[in-house]
Simulated assay, not measured.
Amino acid sequence: MLRRALPVGLAAAALALVPAGASAAPAGGGGNASTSISYSAYGAVTLPDGRSAQVSLGEFRAHDGWAGSVNVYVAAPACTDWPCPTSSSESGYAEVDADDVTFDRNLDRAVARDVPLTLSSWSWGSGSTQREVTVDLVFTGTGRVDRDTYLGPCGEGSPGCKGVRIDAGRDADVVLTMDGADATGTGRISRGFGVDIGSPASGGGEG
């Protein structure tokens, strides 16, 4: 079991990379190389009161170690009559220790338990309000694992730098437990791995 993830979408999803079948690594070595690894999970659930919620869970490797995050967005109740309900949407985000987030290496499960979260909302007349909740998130993989490999420029676009991205993901069932009440839905668990290889800083050209 490996505890590694990303609180946002995979890095490769934001890059204009072309699928390739050849390596981009310089043949003679001598460049700077860096690696990145990230895990993420996201999904949508229906709360017991009928409202929908979007949830995400992540963990990624930072410069000073591993970091994790939990995010919950609860949509406002549907307006079926006038006047509309005064309650509004709620959202909360928490950065957590890496030990509080667990991702299976084969994407079977992603779990965060007993995460304290502050849900904030705003509505006309009431202004800004907050409430404290405790959140459990459990993603259980259900579908096959899909994999993609991309080759192209480094994520930061440095001249002479080439990057390889290997992404994997699978569909998942989602259970959000908020203050003891369960909400279920579907989502996806993903893993991203990347290698960036840069050319030497100095150069005299090819002779």
Rank of each mutant, 00 (worst) to 15 (best):
D173Q: 08
E95D: 07
G160R: 04
S52H: 15
D81A: 15
G30Q: 12
V164F: 01
S34Y: 09
V8D: 05
D104H: 09
S128M: 10
G207I: 03
G92K: 02
A168F: 02
C154D: 15
D179W: 14
T149I: 10
A22G: 11
V8T: 09
Y73K: 08
S23H: 10
A25P: 09
G194D: 06
W122I: 08
G204R: 15
V175K: 08
S158W: 15
V195A: 13
D104C: 09
A14D: 12
V18P: 03
M178A: 11
H63V: 12
W66M: 11
A16K: 11
G125S: 13
D97S: 13
V18F: 05
G29W: 13
P153G: 09
G50S: 12
E156K: 06
A67C: 06
S120D: 06
G194H: 03
D136S: 00
A78H: 14
A14W: 13
W66S: 12
D104Q: 11
S40H: 02
A112W: 03
S87N: 10
S158V: 14
P7W: 02
A44W: 06
T102W: 01
S190H: 00
G30D: 09
A67T: 14
R131G: 01
S38H: 01
T129D: 10
I189T: 07
S202C: 08
I189A: 00
S69Y: 01
E132R: 01
L10K: 03
V70H: 04
Q130E: 15
R4T: 02
E95F: 03
V96S: 04
A62R: 13
A27T: 14
D136E: 03
G192C: 04
L151M: 12
A62T: 15
L2G: 09
A201C: 04
G205Y: 11
E156C: 11
G155P: 02
N71M: 03
G203V: 07
V70I: 07
G180N: 13
G155Y: 00
G192S: 08
G58L: 01
Q130K: 11
A75G: 11
G187C: 06
